[in-house]
Structure formats: structure tokens, C-alpha cells
């Protein structure tokens, strides 16, 4: 009892010791080495390596913002808390699909929070479940085409050998992706990890790179 009381009063008086304790507390959440890592870096680590430490940091940085958005839109703290749960779960699950080339991690988290909140409000108002937020604000179009790239893999491998000079003309970001997949023969997941980019970005760069190659060697888009 006494220990707690002493600790509390020390804190209130802002004695040097208390300040230091507080600083350490803050440091572990948002500052020090970790604060130098961008949200994008953290999201990539979560998506490529299921890195829970990085997820923890994202959670610290965003959960209160999400809660605030929830309170503002639902005017209900319990629902706002549910929103934190749902939105951060979506961040975890969809991290591999984040695409660096299409916007910041903040925007990505904002839009998925908006979508979860939209669905949640509709459910509370008992509106018909005919469409959901992900239909209204579809994620990147590129996702839908990524299967196509995969199917063409066999034929493109042959082409690459013949067209090395074309391939050198690709922008660096696209060339290194094509190289990982077709020369080093890595899986999409391995290549994304090797380049430290999200899987979603790898797929969209691959699609762009292959599209450009196809154009250069004169293969019509089918």
C-alpha cells in the first residue's frame, strides 16, 4: 500500500525519477529506435514475416485513432471498441495485400477502418445486407488480375531468355521483381520478403513489368 502511495505522489510531483519512468514507458511504445520505422516498414514486416512486434507498434500508433473515429461515427464507446478490434484484425489479415505503390499505410488503414465502420453502422441500423463496404470501395483493381500473371508464367519464362535487352530497359522497381520471379525462380512470397516489399506491391509491379515487356516484344494483350 505504502509503496503505491509513494509512487503515485512522486509521479504527481513530477520528481526526476517519475519523469524518467514515464519517458521509458513512452519510449517502448512510440519512440526510440522503433519510431524511426515508418508505418509502411511495419506493415511490410507484418505482411511478409507475420512480425508481431511490428504489429504491436502499429497497434499502438493507430488503435486510439480508430477508437476516436468510432466514437465520432457511432457515438458509442462499446461499438468504437469493436471497431478497433475489427479494423486492427483486418490490418493483420490483409497486410500482405497492401500495395506500396498505391498510397500510404495511413491511407490504407484509414480506408479499411472506414469500410469496417460503414458495415458496422449498417448492421446496427438493420439495413439489408445486399452490398458491403468492400463492394462500394473495391480494393485495388490489380488484385483481380494477379492470377493472370501466374497463368502465363510458363510462356513468359521462355520469352525472358530471348529478350534480355528489353528486360534491362524496365524501370528498376519492376526489373528486380521480374528478376526475382523468373530468373531466381522464387515464389511471390519469397520475392516479396527478399525485396522487403508487400506481396500486393510485388504483384502489381510484376503485372506492370510483364505488361511492358509484352509491349516491347510485340505480344498483343489477349
Amino acid at each position: 500500500m505504502e509503496g503505491i502511495a509513494v509512487g503515485k505522489s512522486a509521479f504527481e510531483k513530477s520528481s526526476p525519477a517519475a519523469i524518467q519512468t514515464r519517458d521509458v514507458g513512452v519510449k517502448s511504445a512510440t519512440s526510440g529506435q522503433s519510431s524511426e520505422r515508418s508505418d509502411e516498414d511495419l506493415l511490410i514486416a507484418v505482411g511478409n514475416n507475420q512480425d508481431t512486434a511490428s504489429f504491436n507498434l502499429l497497434f499502438q500508433r493507430f488503435s486510439k485513432r480508430i477508437f476516436a473515429m468510432g466514437v465520432k461515427l457511432t457515438r458509442n464507446e462499446q461499438l468504437a471498441q469493436d471497431l478497433v478490434q475489427e479494423a486492427m484484425l483486418t490490418v493483420w489479415k490483409k497486410a500482405p495485400l497492401y500495395d506500396l505503390d498505391r498510397g500510404s499505410a495511413q491511407s490504407w488503414i484509414f480506408t479499411l477502418t472506414r469500410n469496417r465502420c460503414f458495415d458496422m453502422l449498417r448492421k446496427i441500423k438493420r439495413q439489408p445486407n445486399t452490398v458491403n463496404a468492400d463492394d462500394i470501395w473495391p480494393q485495388q483493381e490489380g488484385e483481380l488480375e494477379s492470377n493472370l500473371v501466374h497463368e502465363e508464367r510458363g510462356s513468359m519464362e521462355v520469352e525472358i531468355a530471348q529478350i534480355e535487352s528489353y528486360y534491362q530497359e524496365l524501370p528498376d522497381a519492376q526489373r528486380e521483381v521480374v528478376e526475382q520471379i523468373y530468373i531466381h525462380d522464387r515464389t511471390h512470397e519469397e520475392a516479396a520478403a527478399a525485396l522487403n516489399i508487400p506481396l500486393g506491391t510485388l504483384k502489381s509491379r510484376l503485372r506492370l513489368g510483364l505488361g511492358k515487356l509484352r509491349q516491347m516484344i510485340g505480344i498483343e494483350e489477349s
Binding site: T52, F59, K94, L97
Partner: peptide
């Protein structure tokens, strides 16, 4: 000050999606 960190473990035990 709301603290939601108790949610983290449950979240990170869920599988991730790699295909849309």
C-alpha cells in the same frame, strides 16, 4: 485512457490472407 492491447494476441493468432 482506453487500452486495447489485450486484443493483440487474439488478432495475431489469426491466419493472414495472401490471395485476395
Amino acid at each position: 485512457e482506453p487500452d486495447f492491447s489485450h486484443m493483440i494476441d487474439a488478432i495475431t493468432s489469426e491466419p493472414q490472407s495472401i490471395t485476395p
